[in-house]
Structures are given as structure tokens and as C-alpha cells.
């Protein structure tokens, strides 16, 4: 029996203030909580942080994704959440990741990713499909490089 997979893509603006260390701790705690909770709900996905913005993909059963998204919406560490898409998908793209962190390493993302610039990957400047593809490609590239 094939499972029903819904995929949700959004980006939002960082609201964690302080030093790169504070940002790094913030991102790590987001990942930690995701990696603890997502397997329980059978939700997988990927997160990136660049140009002052988070970009995230969540995939799983529609109810589970809906619940996790609601929790994300209540998180004060970000704002201006732009839901780019929420629709059924043929299959999971991040089946092996409870929450992959893609792009730069967390310390590097914390150090350089807070700067809003037009170069590189700005989640806020991408369409849903493009953001999803970037996250997917980066996750695949990073596979093997980082556990």
C-alpha cells in the first residue's frame, strides 16, 4: 500500500537576534526538536538558512504535516512565514532525513547566512518548486559528506 504524501514548502524571516553563536544554538535547537519529533509523526524534510531566511520542506501524511506546520507557525524565532505550497506529492524526496540541514554547515550558516544579500540562495527569492529542488539537490550532495 502506498502512503499519501503531502509536501509543504515555506520560507520565513529569521527573528533570532544576537551573536552568530546564539544563531547557531537557535538553528541547532530547531534541528534537534525536528529530528526528535518528526520521526514520531513520520514526517521528513529539509531546512536551509541563508540570506536571513529559513527555507523548509516538510513531507508526510497531510494531518501530520498540518500539525507540524501549525507548531512552526507558533514559533517566535521566525516571522513573515510565506507558505509557498501544500499539495500531494508522488513520493517523498527526503525519505532518509527526519530533517536535513542543507547548504553551509550550521556554524557557517549562522556566521554568514544571517546577512541578507542577493547572491547565493535566498529562500525568499525562490518559487516553491525551485526552493524545493534546491533543498533536494543540496541534501543529495551533502549525503555522505555529513551523517
Amino acid at each position: 500500500m502506498t502512503e499519501t504524501v503531502y509536501r509543504l514548502v515555506y520560507y520565513s524571516h529569521n527573528r533570532i537576534v544576537g551573536s552568530p553563536a546564539a544563531l547557531e544554538a537557535g538553528i541547532n535547537s530547531i534541528l534537534e526538536v525536528s529530528r526528535r519529533n518528526n520521526p514520531l509523526a513520520n514526517v521528513t524534510g529539509a531546512l536551509m538558512f541563508n540570506a536571513g531566511c529559513f527555507g523548509q520542506v516538510l513531507e508526510g501524511a497531510p494531518d501530520a504535516v498540518e500539525q507540524i506546520f501549525e507548531r512552526i507557525q507558533m514559533d517566535p524565532r521566525h516571522s513573515d512565514v510565506h507558505l509557498l505550497s501544500f499539495a500531494s506529492a508522488p513520493a517523498r524526496a527526503f525519505a532518509h532525513w527526519s530533517m536535513a540541514f542543507v547548504g553551509a554547515s550550521v556554524p557557517d550558516a549562522a556566521r554568514y547566512g544571517a546577512i541578507a544579500d542577493d547572491t547565493g540562495y535566498s529562500p525568499a527569492r525562490m518559487e516553491s518548486e525551485e526552493l524545493f529542488k534546491v533543498l533536494q539537490r543540496l541534501a543529495l550532495e551533502d549525503e555522505g559528506a555529513t551523517p
Partner: peptide, 13 residues
């Protein structure tokens, strides 16, 4: 800000 953020309710945005 918080209440104005998008909701997904029973699969509907």
C-alpha cells in the same frame, strides 16, 4: 502577526 499567519485546516489553506 501570529493570528494572521497562514493556517492549514483539514488540508485547506
Amino acid at each position: 502577526d501570529l493570528i494572521g499567519r497562514t493556517y492549514i485546516v483539514s488540508g485547506q489553506i
